[in-house]
């Protein structure tokens, strides 16, 4: 029962982040919403580990967290480099 509540809350959060990702007027808004999206997906993976009582999902969550951080930093570099291209 409680799992349904938590998953629906996380799903609404994902939906809002996705709406901002589609609407986002500038590129950096999209990067921000992608960052939030990744964090919520980590929450979903941890909840799945709790639901299936399986330890291995936590490893997936660790790897996903590392990849999400790398992705954020790389996109930040990309956004930063856009100015030099237009200069």
């Amino acid at each position: 029962m409680i799992d349904y509540i938590v998953f629906s809350l996380l799903g609404l959060g994902l939906l809002f982040a996705l709406i901002r990702f589609i609407k986002g007027p500038s590129l950096s808004d999209k990067v921000v919403s992608l960052d939030t999206f990744n964090m919520i997906v980590i929450g979903v993976i941890v909840m799945l580990a709790n639901l299936f009582k399986n330890n291995l999902y936590l490893d997936i969550a660790i790897i996903y967290a590392i990849l999400a951080f790398l992705e954020t930093v790389v996109f930040a570099r990309y956004v930063e480099g856009k100015k030099d291209a237009n200069r």
């Binding site: 509540i5 938590v6 996380l10 609404l12 959060g13 809002f16 901002r20 921000v32 939030t36 919520i40």
Partner: peptide, 24 residues
Amino acid sequence: LVIGGLFFLLGGLGILRMPDTFNR
């Protein structure tokens, strides 16, 4: 778990409602 879900929902809502990039 429910508190965490609420804060994730709040994060999504904040991303959607705030008016400029830094506040998002």
